[in-house]
Simulated assay, not measured.
Amino acid sequence: QNPRNYFPTHLSDMWQYVTSDGYYENWTIVKNSIDSVGNEYVDFKIAWIGYKGSYIESYLIDTLDQVWLINEDDFKNNRALYYKLRAKFGEWYLCGNYNGYNNDKPFYAYVYDTTETSKTYMFYESSAADGNPDSSIYSGSLFTLRAGIGKYSEIGEFYTSYLNGAIIDSIQYGTIYYDTTAIDEHKVKLIPTRPEIIKTYPNPFNTQVKIEYFLPNSGRLKIEIYNILGQKVTTLFNGYACKGREKIIWDGTLFSQQPAPSGLYFVQLYFNGVKIIKHILLRK
């Protein structure tokens, strides 16, 4: 997969997100240019349907396929490294340092999950001097990029947004609303209609990992852990579960109650014929 596919930059490309507080947010590329060494500069105009006003976010995509936000007042030097598009699962890096009002705290990103067509980054503060996500993570937000689409979702503790529709290189995906009347007639609900593993944290982990999941209705649920060879190493839950958002903990032990060795594992959630899989990494 070409890394640049995760961050399209055609002039007039537009993305519409629906947020957890009920707003429809439009991101439109209004300017792009390339300098003499191949760095690309892109301006997004961000506006909300039914509300006046907008603002600009400016990004730099360098020749290493790194995406920098370059007009962010919250960070020193007004810039932060958002996405390393070439980064692999398990890599982490420094995004930037918050400005002085937040005690100059460093802010990090970690490639939390990958598939053939998507990458999910966790942005967080860490207690470790080098930002190692093995250490406790104070706060984390998940941003998912999809190949050919760009940013698909943002999931945080207090804010969530999902892509409603987009126009990329003159091709429309999904539905786009242009006025409040259309929104009222076709109100999008943010409650998922299928089971989800929302997040696993910390990931990588050392002693235990919390698995947060959502069930759209009540029913039979099974949550199992598999190793990289496809062997089931333990079952965390097998029974009737109520709908809603819940969490469960794996303490890193096997069926035998012996500690699991370091390595890559997979959380598999089965619910009503749907199977969801997430990577987790045990490091000791």
Rank of each mutant, 00 (worst) to 15 (best):
F123Q: 09
I155F: 01
L81Y: 10
K210D: 13
E196N: 05
Y108S: 09
Y93A: 14
V233M: 01
D104W: 03
N32G: 06
I183F: 02
N32F: 00
N217P: 06
I211H: 01
N97R: 10
D169S: 11
G263V: 03
G252K: 01
N97Y: 12
Y110T: 14
Y23D: 14
F75N: 00
L69Q: 15
E91D: 13
M14E: 14
K151M: 12
N5R: 07
R4C: 05
D134S: 09
T114H: 01
T115P: 00
Y162R: 06
S126D: 08
Y240H: 15
N5E: 12
T63H: 06
N26Y: 12
L142S: 06
T63N: 12
I249S: 04
Y159V: 03
Y159S: 00
V209L: 05
Q231F: 05
K278N: 01
Y240S: 14
F271P: 04
Q1L: 09
Y213I: 07
D21S: 04
T193G: 10
H279N: 12
G50E: 09
E116D: 10
Y59F: 15
S136G: 08
I167E: 06
F214K: 02
Y270C: 12
R245D: 14
G100Y: 03
Y162L: 07
N2F: 07
P259A: 05
E72Q: 05
S161Q: 13
N71Q: 04
E91R: 12
S141N: 12
P195L: 02
I225V: 09
K284G: 11
L145N: 05
P216V: 10
D13F: 08
V111D: 04
N99S: 13
F44Y: 15
K88F: 06
N39F: 13
V42R: 02
F255R: 05
G131T: 07
Y121C: 09
K187G: 04
S153C: 06
D74P: 06
Y270D: 15
W15H: 09
S127T: 09
N26S: 15
E212H: 08
Y93T: 15
A80G: 11
R245Q: 15
T200M: 02
G140W: 01
N238H: 10
N99K: 11
Y51M: 12
N227I: 01
T120D: 06
